[in-house]
């Protein structure tokens, strides 16, 4: 596996001028992805506004009068004037977010955190393993890789969802599947008789996925238990621990490593993560209280 120098550290991005000050962004539209997930499309309120971000980073989104939550950026990094955030309707803030209308204004702080080592992995096979809504933070990495496709070896996307109806970005998935330079394998945990695809957890796709473990870099995002078992399968397949990157979700508040809400052992997930190299957090993944 060849990762260019500097990749032993995750890529820390410069913080915005005043990281605690939310900038106003307008809601363009809200796209329903599945029963309980939606994508918020935002554009800057002023003409010159934009946000340069790297795949894997997140923003703090503030619904005025309700609250602020961290959501990973799921759009194309080459389009800094359009911010996409896919999230699940799960609490007061996301419920309020779902009720927003085009033209409404939302506060955005960011981008925060580390990024997938996309540019540093040139020359390697890329294995992307996503579970459920974990596909959202990985989509910008895939956009970036596909925009410079000839710089990589094999690119494989393994995607697991609860049911066929719970799969994110269905139309886009079909488009990716139709490409000759990208291998896409999807599986669901539950399906009725009409489903002709795979049934089983996403880890079952790893043993026969077409990539060279000795030259592969794996990007993994999903529920933490899924990531643990995915790592086990990747290691079994021969992928090196330092070539496995995970994106963690924690209770991020300040976004700049001050408040400590997202602390995981010696790490602040908002600042040292959310994308972390497996060998640096292996000990902490097994501790349920962390």
């Amino acid at each position: 596996m060849q990762i260019r120098s500097g990749s032993s550290q995750n890529i820390a991005m410069p913080a915005p001028a005043d990281p605690m000050l939310a900038q106003p962004w307008c809601v363009c539209r809200i796209v329903r992805e599945t029963d309980d997930t939606f994508t918020l499309e935002l554009k800057p309120q002023n003409r010159s506004g934009q946000m340069n971000f790297k795949p894997g980073q997140f923003n703090m989104l503030y619904v005025f009068g309700v609250g602020e939550i961290p959501i990973s950026i799921s759009g194309d990094p080459t389009q800094p004037r359009i911010l996409l955030h896919t999230t699940r309707e799960v609490g007061a803030v996301t419920r309020a977010m779902r009720q927003l209308k085009p033209g409404d204004v939302i506060g955005v702080r960011g981008p925060f955190g580390t990024a997938w080592p996309v540019d540093e992995s040139e020359g390697a096979d890329i294995l992307i393993v996503a579970g459920g809504i974990g596909l959202a933070p990985l989509r910008p990495a895939l956009y970036r890789i596909l925009s410079r496709r000839d710089l990589y070896g094999r690119v494989v996307l393994l995607y697991g969802a609860r049911t066929p109806a719970d799969m994110l970005y269905r139309r886009e998935l079909e488009g990716w599947r139709a490409r000759f330079d990208l291998e896409v394998y999807a599986t669901v945990d539950r399906a009725m008789s009409g489903w002709r695809g795979n049934v089983g957890v996403v880890t079952t796709l790893i043993p026969r996925a077409p990539f060279d473990p000795s030259s592969a870099v794996a990007f993994v995002c999903g529920p933490e238990v899924m990531m643990r078992f995915t790592v086990d399968e990747l290691l079994k397949r021969g992928v090196q621990p330092h070539a496995i990157y995970l994106s963690l979700e924690r209770n991020m508040k300040c976004g700049i490593g001050l408040c400590g809400h997202c602390q995981l052992g010696p790490l602040f997930v908002c600042k040292d993560g959310p994308v972390l190299r497996y060998d640096k957090l292996a000990d902490w993944l097994q501790k349920w209280e962390a």
Partner: peptide, 18 residues
């Protein structure tokens, strides 16, 4: 063992809304 392990993960319903 592999099928049992996979079935356990499926039973956890990991992707469900918490």
């Amino acid at each position: 063992a592999a099928r049992l392990s996979a079935m356990r993960l499926q039973l956890l319903d990991l992707y469900a809304n918490p």
